[in-house]
Design a protein around this nucleic acid. Structure first.
Length: 274
DNA sequence: TATATCTCCTGCGGGC
DNA sequence: TGCCCGCAGGAGATAT
């Protein structure tokens, strides 16, 4: 999505902004009128990302437009005059084209945040606490493995914690990474061996690289790029969503278990709790 | 201070 | 057919 935005919106000026759902801008504390006023007339300078956080920078000022897609958010490019999507909560007119923020479940949103320097990188303040993701040039797998292994919590919880050492991993990629590394999701991180944690980090890098190459993981029309096309990584999933199906490695039936208001999928034979 | 749980939300599918 | 319930899940707030 970041790449798509870089291709379609960089160097474009925001001519007007319309906010039709207050929840979409709830993280912009001064409110929708302030967000609209500060974006209008701004020319987009760049599109950036860390983990699941996306932001646009501008030529005129040092505030970044933060974008988080939550579960169902989309950033879509449409020709002006195209019929409005029911869940298009924010529309930015770029002159001839529109940048839409569409979000069915309203977990995502837009807000402005000042840029700041953290650990040698310039990022929005909202991202200062978020760990680097595996595609960050400064991502250090060995240092990340040490940080993860310091946590006395289940390894899957640690992977989902965006501040724990590595960001960008959600429920799907956590299950896929742990399947690949042959680690049980409930294994406590600080009870894992150094090689085992290193294996998890490496597996996460591989899983996310493959997913990125496939355009992301899509199960339905909610997961699309800026042009509305879906990713195809879901066809490559080994554990997530495969309850009762044979493990591609050993043939055992994939198990689904409740995990903090969501589900974990894993192979009971390859991923034993030790 | 570290870790765990709750909450927000909408559309869909299943059960009755 | 219509109603109700559970489920999906990211991240901040709140609780332990």
């Amino acid at each position: 999505m970041r790449r798509g935005l870089a291709d379609h919106v960089v160097d474009r000026m925001i001519r007007s902004v319309e906010v039709t759902h207050p929840r979409a801008v709830r993280r912009h504390v001064p409110g929708a009128p302030d967000l609209i006023a500060r974006l209008t007339g701004s020319r987009i300078a760049g599109a950036h990302r860390r983990g699941k956080f996306l932001w646009l920078t501008f030529q005129e000022h040092d505030d970044a437009l933060m974008v988080h897609l939550g579960m169902s958010g989309q950033m879509l490019i449409r020709s002006s005059g195209t019929s409005r999507d029911k869940h298009a909560h924010i529309v930015a007119d770029l002159g001839g084209t529109q940048l839409l923020f569409v979000d069915q479940r309203t977990f995502g949103g837009w807000w402005l945040a000042p840029l700041t320097e953290v650990d040698g990188s310039v990022v929005p303040e909202s991202v200062a606490h978020i760990s680097r993701d595996p595609f960050d040039p400064a991502f250090d797998p060995k240092a990340v493995a040490v940080r993860l292994r310091n946590r006395r919590s289940e390894i899957k919880r640690v992977l989902l914690d965006q501040t724990a050492g590595m960001s960008g991993i959600g429920n799907i990629y956590a299950d896929e990474s742990l399947w690949r590394a042959k680690i049980h999701p409930q294994q406590v991180a600080d009870e894992l061996s150094r090689p085992a944690v290193a294996r998890v980090v490496e597996a996460a890098q591989v899983v996310m690289t493959e997913a990125l190459a496939a355009g992301g993981t899509s199960f339905d029309s909610l997961y699309v790029n800026v042009n509305g096309s879906s990713g195809y990584f879901s066809r490559s999933l080994n554990a997530y969503g495969r309850e009762g199906e044979p493990c591609g490695r050993c043939g055992a039936s994939i198990i689904r278990e409740k995990f903090t208001n969501r589900s974990s999928f894993y192979c009971p034979r390859c991923q034993r709790l030790r």
